[in-house]
Design a protein around this nucleic acid. Structure first.
Lengths: 238, 238
DNA sequence: TGGGATTTGTTCGTATGTATT
DNA sequence: GAATACATACGAACAAATCCC
């Protein structure tokens, strides 16, 4: 499926990048976990040169930290950084909401409805990791529909960072509320009610932020290779 | 001066990165100009590996385009991309204005006044390239003073992109107006008048955008190495 | 504190793809 | 349209720093 013609290499880098990204966002890799170039390379069967490329990309996303002459590690954002990320996220998503209201269409509505159904399914299946990811991807999807690709890129970044932050600091909570809030947003879009949509988005992000601001307790110890390989499998068949 | 202790390599990469960045922003390197790894490497006396690292960074900033197995080139943003960048910039800078008004202090005022004087001097000295750069850096400085480092990073990126866009599309204009507008902004900050500051920022960015949306004519042909080396010198002594 | 093992930093040769005549 | 020149993609190997016992 994924095995394309010319882009054999790009595929490998892409798979590694997405695998790690998912593993970090879904909290399978704990912040602080070391990600040595060799280990990444052997898991994904590539040389250190390419492994390093992957780690650099993740660094730009704020998901891994790279200190000079030290192993890259899964990022551990400070509380201050977390607040900064949420601040920027709010401002970007307000812009998204404005754009969406302007361009709203039946097609968009159906597309988002479909996504929300997937979120619902994940919750019913009790797949918590997937729920977290899908909740974030709803916002990325919105940004995509704004039609502004730079805006989408930035939202993508901050949402990923937020997922990591939730992993670090969030108290346990039901993802169900996110789904409800997402549905409300769509209603406001349909009504082209910009102030209402902005208000909903503010509340929604405020709620997410609130959940984040209490230090959590989670600490799992898992084998790096096992975790990554599991995610690599998912990507390959996607 | 710059030659630090341990960071010999990082210095070289950093110098190359900043030199190219300035050269592109000040329009010394025309969009479309090829930037082969070898050429970058020999100008800055480093291997292709490091040259590549520099080009990758510039690619993330949106200042160079890298197509598979082709020379990197100075980016040539489309009109659509230009509009997207300005859209994101407005939304980010609104957030900056809000933050600045909250945190406003005498120290900040003095700091910004100093910057504006430098802008003034550049104009009086008829140093157009420097004027363009300083006008952009005023906004980056503002973002820095917002206290949100992620916001600063994003503003840095969009402002750089805007400079490039102005290089591509702007009709000739005086930078003097920018200085006047910058002074007005500071007045609003001092009065902690958020609505007024937001309005001024909107107008100011609107004016910049207006200047950008008419295709320009500039086309110079210069030697890549000469241009870059000139900028490398500037950085080294900075 | 010391020193061997590990991991990153960097170079550069070969392979492969692209432009040009 | 083929051959040549040129530029990038990738990886092996060595140097240097860090880690860890």
């Amino acid at each position: 499926m994924t095995t394309s013609h010319v882009e054999e290499k790009k595929s490998r880098v892409e798979v590694a990048y997405l695998s790690l990204r998912y593993a970090i966002i879904e909290q399978a890799l704990e912040p602080g976990t070391k990600l040595p170039e060799d280990a990444i390379g052997s898991v994904f069967e590539m040389s250190r040169t390419l492994a390093r490329e992957v780690l650099t990309k993740l660094q730009y996303d704020g998901l891994v930290e790279v200190k000079r002459k030290r192993s890259a590690t899964v990022a551990r954002p400070s509380l201050t950084e977390a607040q900064e990320v949420f601040g920027v996220r709010k401002c970007l998503e307000r812009a998204v909401v404005r754009q969406i209201c302007e361009r709203w269409s039946k097609v968009m509505e159906e597309e988002l409805e479909k996504h929300i159904r997937a979120e619902d399914d994940a919750i019913k299946a009790d797949n918590n990791a997937l729920s977290i990811r899908l909740a974030g991807e709803f916002h990325i999807r919105l940004a995509e529909l704004s039609g502004n690709s730079l805006l989408k890129k930035y939202v993508d970044e901050v949402v990923s960072r937020c997922s990591l932050i939730l992993a670090l600091y969030a108290r346990p909570h039901s993802s169900q509320c996110a789904v409800t809030e997402h549905r409300e947003l769509i209603k406001a879009f349909s009504a082209k009610d910009v102030p209402r949509a902005l208000e909903l988005m503010n509340e929604h992000l405020g709620a997410v932020e609130q959940r984040a601001m209490i230090p959590g307790t989670a600490t799992k110890k898992l084998d790096l290779c096992d975790v990554i390989q599991k995610y690599a499998g998912q990507i390959d068949h996607a």
